[in-house]
Design a protein around this nucleic acid. Structure first.
Length: 277
DNA sequence: AAACAGGCCTAAA
DNA sequence: TTTAGGCCTGTT
């Protein structure tokens, strides 16, 4: 994939493997929203950006408080998704799903943000997840300006760790509030060291995350996949369960997809939710 | 009105 | 080791 960085702007000139709609709507992130013209605006890593397509190109215009390197890393622009699609294409179903999902990329989100976001996601729907996260950022994040609007960074674990449960009442996140605070305290105190976990194996990373109250198998897999960029992680939610029971044998193991099972999972998830067979 | 939404925890077999 | 029920809240 070819791309060019200039001041505050990146042009991806052959964007076959960068489809903004699929990247932002495949369920991996909650802070990207499209306007009526299809321009996406999102907040990440303390900054913000607008992303839009013009013909075969995709443009990313980013705020002054981040750099080209940050954006490049966030979108994992150096990763070759064409070869990943080929490597996971081990059967007809996943081939169809991968073709349908061509253009999806796994973002390199901040580990703490991923952890917190997927705790919130449990037994919840996407609009409400987004609403809870936005309210949390407005209350506890840091404001900054971009293109004439004010945005709020994702609050740090340190900030959240100092809150009492009732201070999260405005979020209306119910029983998840205690999980959020517990996780924030663990991260802030260094008991849950996400940077250290990122250098462990996938199995060890998941095991340590699951030791945390409120983090089960699904959330742990989402955190390592979306927050630690471990692309072999394979979160199993209700949609994936449907796919597995209808398309695969009972003894299915994600390892059949190899090192990029997580990308296969995203193709399957996006394909299943589209309603295509 | 009752059931459900991208789970997790606990108690009970 | 697997299963049922409860959990906050908003939406249908």
């Amino acid at each position: 994939m070819r791309y060019l960085c200039s001041e505050n702007l990146i042009e991806i000139s052959d964007a076959e493997d960068f489809d903004p709609v699929k990247i932002f709507e495949c369920g991996q992130c909650f802070r990207w929203n499209a306007d009526s013209k299809g321009i996406y605006t999102g907040v990440f890593l303390g900054g913000a950006a607008k992303v839009w397509r013009e013909g075969v190109s995709v443009f990313v215009k980013y705020s002054d408080n981040i750099t080209c390197d940050v954006v490049e890393n966030y979108f994992d622009l150096k990763r070759d998704y064409e070869s990943i699609r080929i490597s996971v294409g081990i059967d007809d179903y996943i081939k169809r799903a991968a073709e349908y999902g061509k253009g999806i990329r796994i973002l390199r989100q901040e580990p703490w943000e991923a952890l917190c976001s997927f705790i919130i996601s449990q037994c919840n729907n996407i609009p409400r997840i987004k609403k809870i996260i936005e309210t949390m950022c407005r209350h506890f994040g840091e404001p900054f300006e971009f293109e004439g609007d004010t945005y709020y960074s994702f609050p740090t674990a340190e900030r959240i760790s100092k809150l009492s449960p009732c201070e999260l009442d405005p979020l209306k996140c119910g029983y998840r509030a205690q999980y959020i605070i517990d996780a924030a305290c663990a991260v802030a105190a260094g008991r849950l060291d996400l940077d250290a976990i990122s250098s462990l194996t996938y199995e060890e990373a998941v095991r340590l995350l699951k030791a945390q109250n409120g983090i089960g198998d699904k959330v742990a897999n989402c955190v390592v996949l979306f927050g630690l960029n471990m692309l072999s992680a394979f979160p199993v939610d209700v949609w994936i369960k449907k796919v597995l029971s209808s398309q695969y044998e009972k003894d299915f193991s994600p390892e059949v997809f190899g090192d990029y099972a997580g990308v296969a999972q995203q193709y399957m998830f996006f394909y299943a939710r589209s309603g295509e067979k």
